[in-house]
Design a protein around this nucleic acid. Structure first.
Length: 479
DNA sequence: ATGTCC
C-alpha cells in the first residue's frame, strides 16, 4: 500500500479532549485531534494517518486538526480542518472539501409544539414522503429551465431561489454568507457537471442525507436558543443535503486536473487523493471558482426543499416554518486569521467540520452578534441532533464538529440490521420513517455512528463550541 | 457523497 514504510504515528494525550500527533517525517506541522479516548477512530489508524498526511501539505499552518467525529475519508479525514497560507505557497485540495461540496444543514422552527403535532403527524409525514425527492435520481421539486437558469443558481444560490419566488427575504438573513458566495465561477463547471446538476435542484440525495421532523428536547443555553428562535417542546425541521451530482462531478474533474498539474509545481503528497495546487495557481483558482458555484447550488437545493416542507406544514398542520440557520460543513474558505502574531490570508479547508464564529464576531449579522454563530449538527435518526454556538478562543480557526461521525462502514452496518427491522424498531419508539430503500436505511442505522451527544460534549470540552439545544427525531424522510 | 465503475 502507499503507506508501506511510513513512520509510526506518535499519538500523545495533551488534555482531557485533546491528542497530539507529533511532527514526524514530511509533516510540516503537528496533528491535533480533539476527542476523548473513547471517540478516537476505531479499527486501526487510517483516519489518524490521514491527519498526519494532511500535515505534509505545502503552506499548511499551525496544525492539521481533527474534530471528535473524525473518521476515514477520501484523502483528508472527515472531521478534518486544515488551513494553508495563500501568500506562502499554500495549496487548495478538493479532497479537503470532499465529493459532496457544500453538504450542509438547514434548520427551520415551526410555530407549533410537539404536543399539537400528534393528531396530524400521519398526514404530515405522508405529505413529506410524497413531495421530498430522495435516493439516486428520482426527480426534484424545481424544474430548472436550462443551462442559463442553472448558471443563475450557481451564481446566486439561495438568493436567486428567493428572487424566483422560492422563499422570503428573511430566509437570506439566516443563511451563511447571506445565501450566496460572490466568487462562484460557472465557467469552471464542466458541461458534464452542469448536465448532472440540471434536474437535481430540490432533491435530498442518498447516504446520510435526510429531512427530519424534530422536537426541541433539552436546552443547555436558553439565551442562545431564544436568539436562534428555539424553545423547549417546539417542532423543528432539519434538512441535511448537498450539491448532488454537480458537486461530485466538480470534485472528480478538478482532482484530475490537479493530479496532472502537481509535477509542474513540484508538489509531492503521500497519498494521491491529496491532489492539490497552489491557491494562487490557475488550477487552484479554477477549483475555488467551481467549488463556490457548487456551494451556491447546495444552498439553493436546501432553500427549495425547505419551501416544499413549508407547503406540507401549511396544508397538514396549518403551521409556518421560520429559518433558524443554514450552514455548510464541506467547504474551503479564504479567511484572515492571526498566525504567529501576524494576520495571514488562509485557505481554510473544513471537511465534515463547521465554522463556529464566537459572540461579537464582526462576520455575524446583527441579530446573532450576541449569541455567536449557530452550528447545526445532524445526528442519527434514532438518537438526536444538536444546535451549538461558537465560543471565544477561536481554536482550529473557529471550527467545530459536524455530526455524529461514522463508526461502522456501510457494509458493516447492513450486517447488523435489516432495513425493515430497523424501521419497525424506530416506529415502535414513535419515530415515523419514510425511506427510499431498505438497504439505504440499514446503512444509516444509529449503531453505525458514534454517540452524537458524546461528540458534542467532547467538542465543548475541547473549547470549540457550546451546546445550545438538543433535538430529538419525531419523523424522518431518509435519502 | 455519487446516474454507488466510462
Amino acid at each position: 500500500m502507499h503507506h508501506h514504510g511510513a513512520p509510526p504515528l506518535d499519538l500523545v494525550q495533551a488534555g482531557p479532549y485533546e491528542f497530539r500527533l507529533e511532527r514526524l517525517g514530511a509533516m510540516r506541522v503537528p496533528g491535533v485531534v480533539f476527542a476523548s479516548r473513547e471517540l478516537l477512530p476505531e479499527g486501526g489508524d487510517e483516519a489518524l494517518r490521514q491527519v498526519a498526511d494532511v500535515a505534509t501539505l505545502p503552506g499548511i499552518v499551525v496544525a492539521s486538526y481533527a474534530m471528535p467525529d473524525v473518521h476515514w475519508g477520501y484523502g483528508f479525514p472527515i472531521g478534518g480542518v486544515a488551513a494553508t497560507d495563500v501568500d506562502d505557497g499554500g495549496v487548495v485540495s478538493p479532497g479537503g472539501v470532499g465529493f459532496d461540496i457544500s453538504c450542509g444543514v438547514r434548520l427551520l422552527a415551526a410555530d407549533l409544539d410537539a404536543a399539537a403535532l400528534r393528531r396530524v403527524m400521519r398526514p404530515l409525514m405522508d405529505g413529506l414522503g410524497r413531495v421530498i425527492p430522495r435516493g439516486a435520481g428520482r426527480g426534484a421539486v424545481w424544474q430548472v429551465s436550462g443551462r442559463r437558469q442553472l448558471e443563475a443558481v450557481l451564481a446566486g444560490g439561495s438568493r436567486y431561489a428567493v428572487e424566483q419566488g422560492h422563499g422570503g427575504e428573511r430566509d437570506l438573513m439566516r443563511c451563511e454568507d447571506a445565501g450566496a458566495v460572490a466568487d462562484a465561477d460557472p465557467e469552471q463547471v464542466s458541461a458534464r457537471a452542469m448536465e448532472r446538476g440540471l434536474g437535481q435542484v430540490g432533491s435530498l440525495g442518498g447516504g446520510n442525507h435526510f429531512l427530519e421532523v424534530q422536537r426541541v428536547d433539552e436546552v443547555p443555553d436558553e439565551a442562545a436558543a431564544a436568539a436562534f428562535g428555539l424553545r423547549p417542546g417546539q417542532v423543528c425541521v432539519m434538512i441535511h443535503c448537498g450539491s448532488r451530482g454537480l458537486g461530485h462531478q466538480i470534485c472528480t474533474d478538478h482532482v484530475r486536473a490537479m493530479e496532472a498539474a502537481m509535477p509542474r509545481y513540484g508538489i509531492e503528497v503521500p497519498d494521491r487523493q491529496l491532489a492539490c495546487a497552489p491557491v494562487a495557481s490557475p488550477e487552484g483558482r479554477a477549483y475555488l471558482g467551481a467549488m463556490a458555484a457548487a456551494a451556491n447550488y447546495g444552498r439553493a437545493n436546501r432553500q427549495l426543499l425547505a419551501e416544499a416542507a413549508r407547503r406540507i406544514f401549511a396544508d397538514a398542520a396549518g403551521a409556518t416554518l421560520d429559518l433558524v440557520y443554514d450552514v455548510s460543513h464541506n467547504l474551503a474558505k479564504l479567511e484572515t486569521h492571526r498566525v504567529d502574531g501576524a494576520d495571514r490570508r488562509l485557505c481554510v479547508h473544513r471537511k465534515g467540520a463547521t465554522l463556529a464564529l464566537p459572540p461579537g464576531h464582526p462576520g455575524l449579522p446583527e441579530d446573532l452578534r450576541a449569541s455567536g454563530q449557530p452550528v447545526l449538527i445532524p445526528g442519527t435518526m434514532g438518537t438526536s441532533s444538536w444546535v451549538l454556538t461558537g465560543v471565544p478562543g477561536g481554536r482550529a480557526f473557529h471550527s467545530t464538529c459536524h455530526g455524529a461521525g461514522r463508526r461502522l462502514s456501510r457494509h458493516q452496518a447492513i450486517r447488523t440490521v435489516g432495513g425493515k427491522e430497523l424501521r419497525a424498531r424506530l416506529e415502535s419508539r414513535g419515530i415515523a420513517v419514510r425511506g427510499a430503500s431498505w438497504r439505504g436505511l440499514a446503512e444509516e442505522t444509529p449503531d453505525a455512528y458514534k454517540d452524537v451527544s458524546a461528540v458534542v460534549e467532547a467538542a465543548e470540552g475541547a473549547g470549540l463550541c457550546r451546546r445550545v439545544a438538543r433535538l430529538t427525531p419525531l419523523g424522518v424522510v431518509k435519502g
